[in-house]
């Protein structure tokens, strides 16, 4: 109601929902995963004439989402505190993955002229060799929308954010193995190592 009449009154949201593990074929890859602080502590803040005081904490939800996807997608996942930690792993991982949340946009009903809050986000997922060289960077977008009917503005923003994260998670789970560099570099190398 507030969002509809006044163009969003704002609020504080912490995304708490869990993410289901994807039902996909596991890739024979041992990966090290580094979550930078910019991902784990990400808070979207927005203040302006039309949107006042929205604060959306997405950091822990990012981690839960990526943990759910990577654990289902790879045969072994090792979480590391820094990129340098990957060099000490024995045996060396097949790759290092470092996701970053590059953009988060929130559109309240008054701006989108709908009855829905909409969230759009973009992750940049860097896939690195164990020496730190970048194999490729993969932009993954997510979109979610949720109506205000029957829920508060904060609940609608959380729901839209969760749907956007699930959208991104679905893309990663389904499309990671189809990335050219994954097929040609990571999976082929793994096959050679196994021989």
């Amino acid at each position: 109601m507030c969002a509809t009449l006044l163009g969003a009154c704002g609020g504080t949201v912490e995304v708490r929902q869990a993410f289901p593990p994807p039902l996909v074929a596991r890739l024979p890859l041992r990966v090290a995963v580094h979550y930078p602080p910019s991902l784990t502590a990400y808070v979207h803040r927005e203040k302006g004439a039309a949107q006042q005081g929205w604060s959306v904490s997405v950091g822990t939800a990012n981690v839960r989402m990526f943990d759910a996807v990577f654990t289902a997608l790879f045969s072994e996942v090792i979480r590391i505190g820094s990129l340098d930690d990957a060099r000490t792993l024995v045996p060396a991982p097949d790759a290092i993955i470092q996701p970053a949340l590059a953009a988060y946009e929130l559109s309240p009903p008054a701006l989108s002229a709908t009855e829905q809050f909409a969230v759009w986000l973009r992750f940049d997922i860097d896939v690195l060799a164990t020496d730190g060289a970048r194999l490729f960077s993969w932009p993954v977008t997510g979109y979610g929308q949720a109506g205000t009917g029957g829920m508060s503005d904060e609940q609608a923003v959380e729901r839209a954010t969760v749907l956007a994260l699930r959208d991104a998670a679905a893309t990663i789970a389904v499309e990671f193995a189809n990335q050219f560099q994954v097929r040609r570099v990571l999976l082929d190398e793994t096959a050679r190592d196994a021989q």
Binding site: F19, P20, P21, P22, L23, Y143, L163, R166, A170, T171
Partner: peptide
């Protein structure tokens, strides 16, 4: 939808 994730997500 959760049990079949991600196959019934809106995009997929």
């Amino acid at each position: 939808i959760d049990a079949l994730f991600p196959w019934f997500e809106p995009r997929i």
